[in-house]
Design a protein around this nucleic acid. Structure first.
Lengths: 125, 125
DNA sequence: AACGTATTAAACCAGTTGGTTAAATACAAA
DNA sequence: TTTGTATTTAACCAACTGGTTTAATACGTT
């Protein structure tokens, strides 16, 4: 499977996303990772294997522990893919912006109270 | 299934990502969408249903055609999730930056040629 | 050597996925 | 009303997923 599909399908599970969130706060052993979940250890072990295959985590050895560490690099590619569409989901806000600006112009012309505009973050134009 | 999982798993297939890319250039009928793929029409129809359930596309009716239109909104949530990790995948570049800056400082001190620094895009700090 | 803890492997299961082909439906045009 | 075109549904299939329980493995401690 291609890297991007591998990344997205690894992210398509709430348990795995929660594991990544946990690992964002620092490396952890399998038991530590498993603790918050109402799920058997082998199930967690399988999730970790999925994350490892997607290269979202890396594992080392320390005695009988196999600590996991977050590796965010694959997310960069996923982000770049999604990024292509940012303009599209911001468009409606831009249109709303334009509409509100127009309203505002009118209200100013009519000496009425001004109208707030939505804030559209401009990133990586 | 939660919205985010729905979105990520819809994106976890190259055919579906290609369909979205096609729709980014404008609405299209099912046949038009299917044309570039070495796959039966029912297969495409199923992919479209997955995208529709994830609300990544919307469909209307026009005579016997059911044109599909891209709806990028769910990508915003996906982007926001990934966004949390941006700093982590940029860190190594920041470290590289720091290292190169240090090198440069030294080379300037030694009156040697300056060293280039990597450009790390600063988005949404 | 035996025990306890951490982790994985194996075998199993039900449900989902991604594809197929063949048949049904919806509409326009002749 | 028949025909043609666009699309979906149904039935099927193999492979994958996400979970289980039970057993194996790896290592540190006693």
């Amino acid at each position: 499977m291609d890297r991007l599909s591998l990344t997205f399908s690894a992210l398509a599970d709430p348990t795995r996303r929660a594991i990544l969130a946990r690992l964002a706060t620092g490396a952890a052993s399998v038991n530590e990772i498993a603790a918050p979940f109402a799920m058997s250890l082998p199930a967690i072990s399988k999730h970790l294997k999925v994350l490892e295959r997607a290269q979202l985590i890396a594992r080392s050895k320390e005695a009988q522990w196999r600590p996991c560490e977050l590796k965010a690099e694959p997310l960069r590619e996923a982000d770049a893919w999604i990024e292509q569409y940012r303009q599209m989901w911001e468009e409606r806000f831009d249109r709303l912006d334009a509409y509100l600006m127009e309203l505002q112009a009118k209200s100013i012309a009519a000496k009425a109270a001004p109208v707030k505009t939505t804030k559209t973050k401009k990133k990586k134009s």
